[in-house]
């Protein structure tokens, strides 16, 4: 592997899962009423936002509504929460949960993403680049849940992205331009059926484009800034969704004779405070990507979430304090 002391290796902050207690109540219900012993993968929704507070890492939220099939888009023009489609598998025994080949499962998810990138499906629906997988063993007698999230990211073990230059949004765009971008962005989100995590801005016109349109314009030589809703809020490093996005861009953007080329990405972060919206802590990053081809041999997937001790182990949550009906009856007296 090439080493280069001057360039910074591009680093990413993974998602952390945050599960509202109402999620476990609903899981309890669907397991008993609907899934029963069926342990196939089911659809599940996660939510992330690009306007989180400064003190927080990227968070993917889950609650009672994660099990709802309807994909209602809020009608009040609110565009800061993105719905992500993932899968859940609820095991019937702890042993099945433990012995599952988790590397294999993660690779299956990674390969599906890589496939969507290669076939261009991800160009038509870029939200496919963000997925998750949740495995659960629910002990409904003791109200304990063993669970583990994976947020699959495909990597190319022999190659690395480099972060060449990082600018604050305000260093690239004036506040007038920024307002124009906000306006175009709002229209872009309203026009699309689902809120898009990925988009692009044409520098010359400040038009907001779909990723597909943007790659075409980029390949014609236009200056394009590839944007994404960044769940991270702090510092110079973007959040997890950029990983699979860069793989898509590295493959689909026109290659040059060089082994490496540069792309511009916008880590798009909103902040609302006291009635005002600002993009000031968004970043514009110049990134060096490598050439990859569709028959790339070395493709790897990572992404199991670490537990509270930073280990690659599942987590356990005990909800008996709020789910055990006997206990509750006692405390209610």
């Amino acid at each position: 592997m090439e080493t280069n002391c001057e360039k910074d290796l591009f680093k990413f902050l993974p998602f952390s899962s945050c599960i509202n207690p109402s999620f476990w109540f609903e899981l309890n219900r669907v397991k008993l009423d609907d899934y029963r012993l069926d342990d196939d993968f089911k659809n599940l929704k996660g939510f992330y936002s690009n306007c989180s507070s400064n003190d927080l890492p990227p968070i993917m939220n889950f609650d009672y509504s994660s099990f709802q099939e309807t994909n209602d888009k809020t009608k009040n023009g609110h565009i800061s929460t993105i719905i992500i489609n993932g899968k859940i598998k609820i095991f019937n025994t702890i042993n099945e949960f433990n012995v599952l080949d988790k590397n294999k499962l993660l690779d299956e998810f990674g390969n599906a993403i890589w496939n969507d990138i290669k076939t261009g499906r991800a160009l038509d629906d870029p939200n496919l680049l963000i997925r998750f997988c949740l495995i659960v063993f629910a002990n409904l007698k003791s109200y304990t849940f063993h669970y583990w999230f994976a947020f699959p990211a495909i990597t190319f073990p022999l190659k690395s992205y480099y972060q060449l230059k990082t600018n604050k949004f305000t260093e690239i765009f004036t506040s007038e331009q920024s307002n124009k971008i906000i306006e175009n962005m709002t229209n872009f989100q309203l026009k699309n059926e689902h809120h898009q995590s990925f988009f692009a801005i044409e520098f010359e016109t400040l038009n907001v484009l779909t990723v597909k349109e943007a790659i075409d314009r980029h390949n014609l030589g236009k200056r394009i800034l590839f944007g994404f809703y960044d769940p991270n809020s702090q510092s110079n490093h973007p959040g997890w969704p950029l990983r699979n996005y860069l793989a898509l861009l590295a493959l689909k953007c026109k290659k040059t004779d060089e082994e490496k080329r540069n792309l511009e990405v916008i880590s798009f972060r909103d902040r609302y405070h006291g009635g005002a919206r600002t993009l000031d802590h968004s970043l514009v990053i110049l990134v060096e990507v490598f050439n990859i081809s569709e028959d790339e041999e070395k493709v790897n997937t990572i992404g199991w979430e670490r537990n509270e001790k930073s280990q690659l182990h599942p987590r356990v949550v005990n909800m008996s304090g709020s789910m055990n009906t006997e206990k509750l009856a006692e405390s209610a007296v």
Binding site: L9, F10, K11, F12, L13, P14, S16, P57, N98, K102, N103, T155, P157, S160, Y161, H237, N300, I302, G303, W304, R306, S310, L312, H313, P314
Partner: peptide, 13 residues
């Protein structure tokens, strides 16, 4: 669980 390690470009929170 014998999970393969993440890579050096993952920042742990």
């Amino acid at each position: 669980h014998n999970i393969k390690e993440d890579d050096e470009t993952t920042i742990f929170t």
